[in-house]
Write a protein that binds this DNA or RNA. Sequence first.
DNA 1: AAGTTGAGCTTACACGTGTACACTATTCTA
DNA 2: TAGAATAGTGTACACGTGTAAGCTCAACTT
Lengths: 208, 208
Amino acid sequence: MSGIRAQQKEKTRRLLVDAALNQLSAERSFSNLSLREVAKEAGLAATSFYRHFNDMDELGLTLVDEAGLTLRQLMRQARQRIEKGGSVIQISVFTFMEFIEANGNVFRLLLRERSGTSPEFRAAVNREIRYFTMELCDYLQKANKLDHETSYLQANAAVIIVFSAGAEALDANKMEKEELTNRTIKQLRFIARGAMDLSARTKIMQGN
Amino acid sequence: MSGIRAQQKEKTRRLLVDAALNQLSAERSFSNLSLREVAKEAGLAATSFYRHFNDMDELGLTLVDEAGLTLRQLMRQARQRIEKGGSVIQISVFTFMEFIEANGNVFRLLLRERSGTSPEFRAAVNREIRYFTMELCDYLQKANKLDHETSYLQANAAVIIVFSAGAEALDANKMEKEELTNRTIKQLRFIARGAMDLSARTKIMQGN
DNA sequence: AAGTTGAGCTTACACGTGTACACTATTCTA
DNA sequence: TAGAATAGTGTACACGTGTAAGCTCAACTT
């Protein structure tokens, strides 16, 4: 059941996926990538594309899934770093910025398709971001002993700020990136401080 | 010097701009709008397009400019409302959400082109957002007597949060929008509180 | 060993695209 | 009022697109 044939197929499927990823750049979004171009880059005849995907959208959704996976691996990596000590916020931002540096095109894909024309794509990206937010929410809830609503609001705001900084980092040079990182860290501290503060006040007013 | 001719020309130029705006929707982004389609929608022959714009990009940049203008008018409107009393944050968010409701396609244009493939478009959108942020920064600095850095960080974070909420509102139903509005207001309060707090602390540590 | 399956190929087609070119008709200029 | 300028038109072209049809040949099944 090894399947020398299925194996070969999987291999050229990867070729297509990688070809698509390689063509993505600041100047080239997935939506203006043609089936023919991708097939050519993969070294295949255009029509062979259909042996693996029904259309470009199907390939695109695969890409989004993979991007989400990468993103979650990143989270795990960050958590490991945090366990070794250091500021949670600082380490998270650094880790995220390193991700952008190494996976610019993947991140661009997420950013673009989130506001793109395909409802399916938008949903897929938002799902990935939701996972990301939820993991952070859980973490905050446990680490800071906040109620669920407050920690969710904080997690959600933090993810938005970090993603937006990531988007800006894509076009930034080294110095700008450093400044951007500092700015982001301070902003996350605003949010964390405000969350603690307002949550405490609510507790007092509710008498618990 | 009235120029019956120049007048006519301006009129059909508007026809083109409006045609483009009308074709924008959740399913249709500017980048997959063709010159021929726009010309047809405007009731013109395809080649007449060139009498007004060199290419679609030029039309697109005009659109972005107009969108920015609308956005700034919005700010003024919000400030007027605020002067009549009420929570600054609440009124700002309400005003912004009304803008999204009424100008969904314009807002979509800004969102999409901010992460689009054209550097010129990206720059244009970011310029508009920067204006928007600066106005808010000035306001915060005066109203809350914060230092420039803190009020800038706060303004920047607030704009990011509000824009992101706007993006989500585009796909939301009435109930979701209400919830989204409340969430956003709370998040802006986090940021405002954190900014005040951390700014005060810095002042004390610096001994002034 | 014989027959079936399927990955990849070539060829072919209809369609939408941007834009060059030449033309008409109206407005502007002198 | 004669001539230049120009907004708008219709035709034409080359090009890239998605995809249908049918072929080959290696891998699978029985």
